[in-house]
C-alpha cells in the first residue's frame, strides 16, 4: 500500500518537475521512471500513474481555466465537439494524460522486471 502512495506522489512530483523543461510527454517519462524505481503490482501498475497524472493535469487545467471564467475551455470543448462543456474538457484532458502515464507505467514495470532478472 505504501508503495502505491510512494509511486503516486513520485509520479506526480516528477511529472511536475520534468514538465518545467520538457514538452507534454514529460508525464510519460515521469511515469516510466517511477515505474522502474518504485515497482507496483497488478492493476496498480497502470492505475497509480494514471491517477497521479490525471490529478496533476485536471487540477492544473481547472486552476488556469477557472481564473479566466473558462472562456477558452468552453470554446475548445465546442471545437472538439464535446458539447462546449469546460468540465468535460478538463476530464478529457485528465484522461489523456492519465492513460499516457498509465501505459508508460506498464512499460516501466516491464523494464524493471528485466533489470531484476539479470
Amino acid at each position: 500500500m505504501s508503495k502505491n502512495i510512494l509511486n503516486l506522489v513520485g509520479t506526480f512530483v516528477l511529472s511536475l518537475v520534468l514538465s518545467l523543461f520538457l514538452p507534454w510527454w514529460s508525464i510519460m517519462l515521469a511515469a516510466f521512471i517511477t515505474g522502474i524505481v518504485i515497482s507496483l503490482k497488478k492493476a496498480a501498475v497502470f492505475f497509480i500513474p494514471f491517477v497521479a497524472v490525471f490529478l496533476y493535469w485536471a487540477i492544473y487545467c481547472y486552476v488556469l481555466s477557472s481564473a479566466n471564467d473558462f472562456i477558452l475551455a468552453k470554446k475548445i470543448s465546442e471545437l472538439l465537439t464535446i458539447g462546449g462543456n469546460p468540465y468535460l474538457l478538463i476530464l478529457v484532458t485528465g484522461l489523456i494524460g492519465g492513460i499516457a502515464a498509465g501505459l508508460s507505467g506498464i512499460l516501466g514495470k516491464q523494464v524493471s522486471i528485466i533489470i531484476k532478472s539479470k
Binding site: W24, W57, Y60
Partner: peptide, 27 residues
C-alpha cells in the same frame, strides 16, 4: 497524441496544461 490527424490537433500537445491551449486561457 503528438501528431495532427486530419482536422484533429495533436491532442497531447494541444491539451496538456503546461504548454497546450490551457496556457492561452489568460487575460
Amino acid at each position: 497524441l503528438n501528431t495532427k490527424l486530419e482536422s484533429i490537433p495533436p491532442l497531447g500537445k494541444f491539451l496538456n496544461p503546461t504548454s497546450g491551449i490551457w496556457q492561452n486561457e489568460v487575460d
